[in-house]
Design a protein around this nucleic acid. Structure first.
Lengths: 205, 205
DNA sequence: GTGAACCTCCCCTTTTTCCATGATTTTGAA
DNA sequence: TTCAAAATCATGGAAAAAGGGGAGGTTCAC
Protein backbone atom coordinates (compact mmCIF):
# COMPACT_ATOMS: atom_id res chain seq x y z
CA UNK A 1 0.00 0.00 0.00
CA UNK A 2 1.52 3.29 -1.11
CA UNK A 3 1.85 6.15 1.35
CA UNK A 4 -0.42 9.03 0.30
CA UNK A 5 1.41 12.35 0.44
CA UNK A 6 -0.01 15.86 0.14
CA UNK A 7 1.88 19.15 0.34
CA UNK A 8 0.87 22.66 1.36
CA UNK A 9 3.41 25.26 0.26
CA UNK A 10 3.06 28.51 -1.61
CA UNK A 11 6.48 28.14 -3.20
CA UNK A 12 5.73 26.52 -6.50
CA UNK A 13 9.34 25.51 -7.00
CA UNK A 14 9.44 23.66 -3.73
CA UNK A 15 6.26 21.81 -4.63
CA UNK A 16 7.67 20.92 -8.03
CA UNK A 17 10.98 19.91 -6.48
CA UNK A 18 9.45 17.54 -4.00
CA UNK A 19 7.03 16.13 -6.54
CA UNK A 20 9.89 15.54 -8.95
CA UNK A 21 11.94 13.85 -6.25
CA UNK A 22 9.14 11.64 -5.00
CA UNK A 23 8.18 10.53 -8.52
CA UNK A 24 10.95 7.95 -8.39
CA UNK A 25 9.65 6.46 -5.16
CA UNK A 26 7.27 3.64 -6.02
CA UNK A 27 5.61 3.30 -2.63
CA UNK A 28 4.63 6.95 -2.45
CA UNK A 29 1.42 8.26 -3.95
CA UNK A 30 1.38 11.95 -4.80
CA UNK A 31 -2.03 13.41 -3.95
CA UNK A 32 -1.34 16.96 -5.04
CA UNK A 33 -0.67 20.29 -3.40
CA UNK A 34 -2.27 23.40 -1.97
CA UNK A 35 -0.83 26.92 -2.11
CA UNK A 36 -2.54 28.22 1.02
CA UNK A 37 -4.17 27.14 4.25
CA UNK A 38 -7.75 27.55 3.00
CA UNK A 39 -7.39 25.27 0.01
CA UNK A 40 -5.41 22.82 2.10
CA UNK A 41 -8.29 22.55 4.57
CA UNK A 42 -10.75 22.29 1.70
CA UNK A 43 -8.80 19.36 0.29
CA UNK A 44 -8.56 17.63 3.66
CA UNK A 45 -12.32 17.94 3.98
CA UNK A 46 -12.64 15.68 0.93
CA UNK A 47 -9.77 13.27 1.40
CA UNK A 48 -6.94 12.72 3.82
CA UNK A 49 -3.31 11.91 3.06
CA UNK A 50 -1.18 9.73 5.28
CA UNK A 51 1.51 12.38 5.39
CA UNK A 52 1.10 16.12 4.99
CA UNK A 53 4.13 18.25 4.20
CA UNK A 54 3.26 21.62 5.65
CA UNK A 55 5.08 24.90 5.07
CA UNK A 56 5.34 27.06 8.17
CA UNK A 57 4.89 30.24 6.17
CA UNK A 58 1.65 30.07 4.27
CA UNK A 59 0.19 33.33 3.00
CA UNK A 60 -3.12 33.15 4.84
CA UNK A 61 -2.18 31.38 8.04
CA UNK A 62 0.87 30.39 10.06
CA UNK A 63 1.69 26.76 9.37
CA UNK A 64 2.22 26.39 13.09
CA UNK A 65 -1.39 27.27 13.88
CA UNK A 66 -2.63 25.28 10.93
CA UNK A 67 -0.74 22.26 12.19
CA UNK A 68 -2.59 22.38 15.49
CA UNK A 69 -5.92 22.84 13.76
CA UNK A 70 -5.40 19.92 11.41
CA UNK A 71 -4.19 17.56 14.12
CA UNK A 72 -7.33 18.32 16.12
CA UNK A 73 -9.63 17.55 13.20
CA UNK A 74 -7.61 14.75 11.63
CA UNK A 75 -5.38 13.19 14.28
CA UNK A 76 -4.39 10.35 11.94
CA UNK A 77 -2.59 12.60 9.47
CA UNK A 78 1.14 12.71 10.06
CA UNK A 79 2.38 16.25 9.56
CA UNK A 80 5.92 17.14 8.58
CA UNK A 81 6.93 20.78 9.00
CA UNK A 82 8.66 22.27 5.99
CA UNK A 83 10.76 25.39 6.13
CA UNK A 84 13.91 27.11 5.05
CA UNK A 85 14.37 28.72 8.42
CA UNK A 86 16.40 26.55 10.69
CA UNK A 87 15.03 28.07 13.82
CA UNK A 88 14.54 26.29 17.05
CA UNK A 89 11.44 28.25 17.94
CA UNK A 90 9.60 26.98 14.90
CA UNK A 91 10.73 23.44 15.38
CA UNK A 92 9.64 23.35 18.97
CA UNK A 93 6.28 24.92 18.22
CA UNK A 94 5.54 22.53 15.38
CA UNK A 95 6.35 19.51 17.52
CA UNK A 96 4.28 20.92 20.36
CA UNK A 97 1.38 21.28 17.95
CA UNK A 98 1.53 17.65 16.98
CA UNK A 99 3.88 17.56 14.02
CA UNK A 100 5.76 14.32 13.39
CA UNK A 101 8.87 16.12 12.30
CA UNK A 102 10.54 18.93 10.56
CA UNK A 103 12.33 18.95 7.22
CA UNK A 104 14.42 21.78 5.84
CA UNK A 105 13.94 22.86 2.28
CA UNK A 106 17.47 21.94 1.34
CA UNK A 107 16.80 18.33 2.31
CA UNK A 108 17.83 15.56 -0.04
CA UNK A 109 15.51 12.91 -1.47
CA UNK A 110 16.81 10.43 1.10
CA UNK A 111 15.97 12.74 3.97
CA UNK A 112 12.43 13.34 2.80
CA UNK A 113 11.75 9.66 2.22
CA UNK A 114 13.23 8.88 5.63
CA UNK A 115 11.09 11.57 7.24
CA UNK A 116 7.95 10.12 5.66
CA UNK A 117 8.85 6.62 6.83
CA UNK A 118 9.57 7.76 10.36
CA UNK A 119 6.37 9.81 10.49
CA UNK A 120 4.33 6.84 9.27
CA UNK A 121 5.71 4.74 12.10
CA UNK A 122 4.45 7.38 14.52
CA UNK A 123 7.90 8.55 15.47
CA UNK A 124 9.38 12.01 15.14
CA UNK A 125 11.89 12.97 12.47
CA UNK A 126 14.12 16.02 12.63
CA UNK A 127 16.38 16.76 9.69
CA UNK A 128 20.02 16.66 10.70
CA UNK A 129 20.53 20.43 10.73
CA UNK A 130 17.32 20.97 12.67
CA UNK A 131 18.32 18.51 15.36
CA UNK A 132 21.71 20.20 15.66
CA UNK A 133 19.94 23.49 16.19
CA UNK A 134 17.78 22.03 18.93
CA UNK A 135 20.75 20.59 20.77
CA UNK A 136 22.85 23.74 20.45
CA UNK A 137 20.19 26.07 21.70
CA UNK A 138 18.76 23.94 24.43
CA UNK A 139 19.66 26.61 26.97
CA UNK A 140 18.27 29.43 24.84
CA UNK A 141 14.67 28.56 25.54
CA UNK A 142 11.91 30.60 24.00
CA UNK A 143 10.62 32.76 26.81
CA UNK A 144 6.99 32.46 27.79
CA UNK A 145 5.61 35.97 27.83
CA UNK A 146 2.14 37.17 28.79
CA UNK A 147 -0.39 38.88 26.56
CA UNK A 148 0.40 42.28 27.98
CA UNK A 149 4.12 41.75 27.66
CA UNK A 150 3.68 40.85 24.02
CA UNK A 151 1.76 44.08 23.47
CA UNK A 152 4.48 46.11 25.13
CA UNK A 153 7.17 44.27 23.18
CA UNK A 154 5.58 45.19 19.88
CA UNK A 155 5.27 48.83 20.87
CA UNK A 156 8.90 48.91 21.96
CA UNK A 157 9.85 47.56 18.55
CA UNK A 158 7.82 50.35 16.96
CA UNK A 159 10.03 52.83 18.78
CA UNK A 160 7.62 54.08 21.44
CA UNK A 161 8.96 55.30 24.77
CA UNK A 162 7.52 54.14 28.07
CA UNK A 163 5.55 57.35 28.31
CA UNK A 164 4.02 56.92 24.86
CA UNK A 165 3.17 53.31 25.56
CA UNK A 166 1.56 54.26 28.84
CA UNK A 167 -0.70 56.72 27.03
CA UNK A 168 -1.54 54.22 24.34
CA UNK A 169 -2.34 51.40 26.76
CA UNK A 170 -3.99 53.61 29.39
CA UNK A 171 -1.64 52.48 32.15
CA UNK A 172 1.08 54.26 34.09
CA UNK A 173 4.64 54.55 32.90
CA UNK A 174 5.85 52.60 35.89
CA UNK A 175 3.71 49.68 34.84
CA UNK A 176 5.13 49.81 31.36
CA UNK A 177 8.54 49.91 32.95
CA UNK A 178 7.72 46.78 34.94
CA UNK A 179 6.62 44.91 31.84
CA UNK A 180 9.72 46.09 30.09
CA UNK A 181 12.01 44.85 32.84
CA UNK A 182 10.15 41.55 32.94
CA UNK A 183 10.74 41.18 29.22
CA UNK A 184 14.44 41.85 29.67
CA UNK A 185 14.75 39.22 32.36
CA UNK A 186 12.56 36.68 30.55
CA UNK A 187 14.62 37.04 27.39
CA UNK A 188 17.73 37.05 29.54
CA UNK A 189 19.14 40.11 27.80
CA UNK A 190 20.70 43.32 29.01
CA UNK A 191 19.04 46.05 26.98
CA UNK A 192 16.47 46.99 24.37
CA UNK A 193 18.70 46.38 21.36
CA UNK A 194 19.27 42.83 22.47
CA UNK A 195 15.62 42.36 23.26
CA UNK A 196 14.44 43.40 19.83
CA UNK A 197 16.96 41.23 18.08
CA UNK A 198 15.90 38.18 20.07
CA UNK A 199 12.23 39.01 19.63
CA UNK A 200 12.63 39.11 15.87
CA UNK A 201 14.56 35.86 15.95
CA UNK A 202 11.90 34.16 18.03
CA UNK A 203 9.24 35.53 15.73
CA UNK A 204 7.52 37.63 18.38
CA UNK A 205 7.52 40.60 16.02
CA UNK B 1 20.20 27.83 -30.24
CA UNK B 2 19.07 26.84 -26.77
CA UNK B 3 19.59 29.17 -23.84
CA UNK B 4 22.08 27.70 -21.41
CA UNK B 5 20.88 27.95 -17.82
CA UNK B 6 22.79 27.29 -14.60
CA UNK B 7 21.50 27.61 -11.03
CA UNK B 8 23.21 28.32 -7.72
CA UNK B 9 21.01 27.50 -4.76
CA UNK B 10 21.57 25.46 -1.64
CA UNK B 11 17.93 24.41 -1.44
CA UNK B 12 17.87 21.11 -3.19
CA UNK B 13 14.11 21.24 -3.61
CA UNK B 14 14.26 24.55 -5.38
CA UNK B 15 16.91 23.26 -7.75
CA UNK B 16 14.86 20.15 -8.43
CA UNK B 17 11.71 22.20 -8.87
CA UNK B 18 13.21 24.53 -11.43
CA UNK B 19 14.94 21.72 -13.27
CA UNK B 20 11.70 19.79 -13.40
CA UNK B 21 9.83 22.84 -14.68
CA UNK B 22 12.39 23.76 -17.31
CA UNK B 23 12.60 20.18 -18.62
CA UNK B 24 9.51 20.83 -20.70
CA UNK B 25 11.02 23.91 -22.33
CA UNK B 26 12.73 22.80 -25.53
CA UNK B 27 14.85 25.90 -26.08
CA UNK B 28 16.43 25.80 -22.66
CA UNK B 29 19.54 23.79 -21.92
CA UNK B 30 20.04 22.79 -18.31
CA UNK B 31 23.73 23.06 -17.42
CA UNK B 32 23.46 21.92 -13.82
CA UNK B 33 23.60 23.48 -10.40
CA UNK B 34 25.89 24.53 -7.56
CA UNK B 35 25.02 24.47 -3.87
CA UNK B 36 27.40 27.23 -2.81
CA UNK B 37 29.31 30.23 -4.10
CA UNK B 38 32.66 28.47 -4.31
CA UNK B 39 31.49 25.67 -6.56
CA UNK B 40 29.48 28.13 -8.60
CA UNK B 41 32.63 30.16 -9.31
CA UNK B 42 34.55 26.97 -10.04
CA UNK B 43 31.95 26.00 -12.61
CA UNK B 44 31.94 29.44 -14.22
CA UNK B 45 35.71 29.19 -14.54
CA UNK B 46 35.22 26.23 -16.88
CA UNK B 47 32.08 27.21 -18.77
CA UNK B 48 29.57 30.05 -18.79
CA UNK B 49 25.81 29.86 -18.99
CA UNK B 50 23.71 32.47 -20.75
CA UNK B 51 21.53 32.86 -17.69
CA UNK B 52 22.48 32.23 -14.08
CA UNK B 53 19.76 31.81 -11.49
CA UNK B 54 21.36 32.96 -8.28
CA UNK B 55 20.03 32.50 -4.77
CA UNK B 56 20.61 35.51 -2.54
CA UNK B 57 21.26 33.34 0.49
CA UNK B 58 24.10 30.99 -0.27
CA UNK B 59 25.84 29.39 2.70
CA UNK B 60 29.34 30.71 2.01
CA UNK B 61 28.62 34.10 0.46
CA UNK B 62 25.82 36.58 0.02
CA UNK B 63 24.31 36.18 -3.44
CA UNK B 64 24.30 39.95 -3.63
CA UNK B 65 28.08 40.17 -3.34
CA UNK B 66 28.51 37.15 -5.56
CA UNK B 67 26.37 38.81 -8.21
CA UNK B 68 28.71 41.79 -8.33
CA UNK B 69 31.77 39.58 -8.46
CA UNK B 70 30.43 37.46 -11.31
CA UNK B 71 29.28 40.43 -13.36
CA UNK B 72 32.78 41.91 -13.12
CA UNK B 73 34.43 38.70 -14.30
CA UNK B 74 31.77 37.59 -16.76
CA UNK B 75 29.73 40.59 -17.88
CA UNK B 76 27.95 38.53 -20.55
CA UNK B 77 26.20 36.28 -18.07
CA UNK B 78 22.66 37.40 -17.33
CA UNK B 79 21.95 36.94 -13.65
CA UNK B 80 18.49 36.45 -12.21
CA UNK B 81 18.17 36.84 -8.45
CA UNK B 82 16.27 34.08 -6.74
CA UNK B 83 14.75 34.37 -3.31
CA UNK B 84 11.79 33.65 -1.12
CA UNK B 85 12.10 36.97 0.63
CA UNK B 86 10.12 39.63 -1.09
CA UNK B 87 12.19 42.45 0.26
CA UNK B 88 12.89 45.63 -1.52
CA UNK B 89 16.39 45.92 -0.09
CA UNK B 90 17.45 42.71 -1.78
CA UNK B 91 15.84 43.58 -5.06
CA UNK B 92 17.46 46.98 -5.24
CA UNK B 93 20.88 45.66 -4.30
CA UNK B 94 20.75 42.86 -6.84
CA UNK B 95 19.82 45.24 -9.63
CA UNK B 96 22.50 47.68 -8.51
CA UNK B 97 25.01 44.85 -8.69
CA UNK B 98 24.12 44.09 -12.27
CA UNK B 99 21.37 41.51 -12.03
CA UNK B 100 18.91 41.31 -14.92
CA UNK B 101 16.00 40.63 -12.64
CA UNK B 102 14.58 39.02 -9.62
CA UNK B 103 12.32 36.00 -9.37
CA UNK B 104 10.57 34.81 -6.26
CA UNK B 105 10.64 31.17 -5.32
CA UNK B 106 6.92 30.83 -5.68
CA UNK B 107 7.14 31.84 -9.33
CA UNK B 108 5.32 29.79 -11.92
CA UNK B 109 6.92 28.15 -14.94
CA UNK B 110 5.64 30.99 -17.12
CA UNK B 111 7.27 33.60 -14.94
CA UNK B 112 10.64 31.90 -14.96
CA UNK B 113 10.61 31.38 -18.71
CA UNK B 114 9.57 34.99 -19.17
CA UNK B 115 12.34 36.17 -16.86
CA UNK B 116 14.91 34.19 -18.83
CA UNK B 117 13.66 35.62 -22.12
CA UNK B 118 13.68 39.19 -20.82
CA UNK B 119 17.15 38.75 -19.32
CA UNK B 120 18.46 37.34 -22.63
CA UNK B 121 17.23 40.45 -24.41
CA UNK B 122 19.26 42.55 -21.97
CA UNK B 123 16.21 43.93 -20.21
CA UNK B 124 15.28 43.68 -16.57
CA UNK B 125 12.57 41.39 -15.26
CA UNK B 126 10.93 41.71 -11.86
CA UNK B 127 8.39 39.13 -10.78
CA UNK B 128 4.98 40.68 -10.23
CA UNK B 129 5.11 40.62 -6.44
CA UNK B 130 8.63 42.01 -6.41
CA UNK B 131 7.66 44.96 -8.57
CA UNK B 132 4.70 45.70 -6.31
CA UNK B 133 7.07 45.75 -3.34
CA UNK B 134 9.37 48.19 -5.11
CA UNK B 135 6.56 50.56 -5.90
CA UNK B 136 5.05 50.40 -2.41
CA UNK B 137 8.27 51.07 -0.55
CA UNK B 138 9.77 53.65 -2.81
CA UNK B 139 9.95 56.12 0.06
CA UNK B 140 11.48 53.61 2.50
CA UNK B 141 14.94 53.76 0.99
CA UNK B 142 17.66 51.51 2.28
CA UNK B 143 20.14 53.73 4.06
CA UNK B 144 23.71 53.74 2.79
CA UNK B 145 25.91 53.17 5.81
CA UNK B 146 29.66 53.07 6.08
CA UNK B 147 31.84 50.15 7.08
CA UNK B 148 32.37 51.50 10.55
CA UNK B 149 28.69 52.23 11.02
CA UNK B 150 27.87 48.65 10.04
CA UNK B 151 30.33 47.41 12.67
CA UNK B 152 28.76 49.58 15.33
CA UNK B 153 25.28 48.53 14.27
CA UNK B 154 26.10 44.87 14.76
CA UNK B 155 27.59 45.51 18.18
CA UNK B 156 24.51 47.50 19.20
CA UNK B 157 22.39 44.54 18.16
CA UNK B 158 24.53 42.31 20.33
CA UNK B 159 23.62 44.45 23.30
CA UNK B 160 26.88 46.29 23.88
CA UNK B 161 26.85 49.76 25.39
CA UNK B 162 28.77 52.66 23.89
CA UNK B 163 31.49 52.16 26.47
CA UNK B 164 31.87 48.47 25.67
CA UNK B 165 31.91 49.17 21.94
CA UNK B 166 34.55 51.85 22.43
CA UNK B 167 36.77 49.35 24.23
CA UNK B 168 36.21 46.71 21.61
CA UNK B 169 36.88 49.02 18.67
CA UNK B 170 39.68 50.97 20.37
CA UNK B 171 37.96 54.32 19.87
CA UNK B 172 36.43 56.79 22.29
CA UNK B 173 32.85 56.54 23.49
CA UNK B 174 32.03 59.88 21.90
CA UNK B 175 33.01 58.49 18.53
CA UNK B 176 30.78 55.51 19.05
CA UNK B 177 28.07 57.94 20.00
CA UNK B 178 28.57 59.84 16.76
CA UNK B 179 28.30 56.69 14.69
CA UNK B 180 25.25 55.69 16.63
CA UNK B 181 23.55 59.02 16.04
CA UNK B 182 24.44 58.87 12.36
CA UNK B 183 22.81 55.45 12.18
CA UNK B 184 19.66 56.81 13.79
CA UNK B 185 19.41 59.66 11.32
CA UNK B 186 20.32 57.52 8.31
CA UNK B 187 17.65 54.99 9.21
CA UNK B 188 15.33 57.86 10.03
CA UNK B 189 14.31 56.36 13.35
CA UNK B 190 13.99 57.70 16.86
CA UNK B 191 15.68 55.12 19.06
CA UNK B 192 17.61 51.89 19.32
CA UNK B 193 14.60 49.60 19.33
CA UNK B 194 13.45 51.06 16.06
CA UNK B 195 16.93 50.93 14.63
CA UNK B 196 17.41 47.24 15.34
CA UNK B 197 14.03 46.35 13.90
CA UNK B 198 14.79 48.20 10.67
CA UNK B 199 18.30 46.78 10.53
CA UNK B 200 16.95 43.25 10.75
CA UNK B 201 14.38 44.03 8.08
CA UNK B 202 17.00 45.46 5.76
CA UNK B 203 19.24 42.49 6.46
CA UNK B 204 22.05 44.50 8.00
CA UNK B 205 22.17 42.04 10.88
C1' DG C 1 -11.41 29.12 47.92
C1' DT C 2 -6.73 29.17 47.60
C1' DG C 3 -2.60 30.07 45.32
C1' DA C 4 0.03 31.27 41.57
C1' DA C 5 0.44 34.13 37.88
C1' DC C 6 -0.69 38.45 36.08
C1' DC C 7 -1.42 43.32 35.98
C1' DT C 8 -1.17 47.27 38.13
C1' DC C 9 1.33 51.06 40.68
C1' DC C 10 5.08 53.66 43.32
C1' DC C 11 9.93 55.36 44.82
C1' DC C 12 14.82 55.90 44.24
C1' DT C 13 19.47 55.77 41.93
C1' DT C 14 22.56 54.97 38.33
C1' DT C 15 23.56 54.23 33.72
C1' DT C 16 22.82 54.90 29.08
C1' DT C 17 20.97 56.97 25.27
C1' DC C 18 19.60 60.95 22.66
C1' DC C 19 20.47 65.53 20.80
C1' DA C 20 23.06 69.69 19.28
C1' DT C 21 27.26 71.66 17.80
C1' DG C 22 31.78 72.00 16.36
C1' DA C 23 36.38 70.45 14.99
C1' DT C 24 40.64 67.66 13.36
C1' DT C 25 42.71 63.83 11.00
C1' DT C 26 42.54 59.96 7.70
C1' DT C 27 41.25 57.91 3.59
C1' DG C 28 40.11 57.05 -1.02
C1' DA C 29 38.46 58.13 -5.49
C1' DA C 30 38.42 61.47 -9.44
C1' DT D 1 46.89 66.28 -5.90
C1' DT D 2 42.89 67.66 -4.38
C1' DC D 3 38.52 67.38 -2.48
C1' DA D 4 34.75 65.02 -0.29
C1' DA D 5 33.55 61.52 2.65
C1' DA D 6 34.63 59.06 6.59
C1' DA D 7 36.39 58.51 11.06
C1' DT D 8 37.89 60.43 14.93
C1' DC D 9 37.18 63.32 19.26
C1' DA D 10 34.95 66.72 22.46
C1' DT D 11 31.40 69.39 25.67
C1' DG D 12 27.20 69.74 27.87
C1' DG D 13 22.56 68.90 28.87
C1' DA D 14 17.92 66.54 28.52
C1' DA D 15 15.53 62.33 28.25
C1' DA D 16 15.03 57.65 28.71
C1' DA D 17 16.18 53.11 30.23
C1' DA D 18 18.02 49.87 33.62
C1' DG D 19 18.03 47.96 38.18
C1' DG D 20 16.36 47.44 42.81
C1' DG D 21 12.79 47.07 46.08
C1' DG D 22 7.97 46.81 47.67
C1' DA D 23 2.87 46.25 47.35
C1' DG D 24 -2.35 45.79 46.31
C1' DG D 25 -5.99 43.99 43.26
C1' DT D 26 -7.64 40.52 39.65
C1' DT D 27 -8.09 36.24 37.32
C1' DC D 28 -8.18 31.62 36.53
C1' DA D 29 -7.20 26.85 37.15
C1' DC D 30 -6.88 23.13 40.51
Amino acid sequence: MAVKVFIADDHYMVVEGIRSMLLTEMNIEWMGHAMNAASCLAFLHLQQPDVLLLDINLPDKSGIDLCKEIKEKYPDIHILGLSSFNQQSYIQKMIQNGASGYVLKNASLEEIVKAIEVAMRGDIFLSSEASVTMRENKDAQIPVITRREKEVLKLIAEGLTNKQMAEKLFISTTTVDTHRNNLLSKFNVKNTANLIRMAVQFDFI
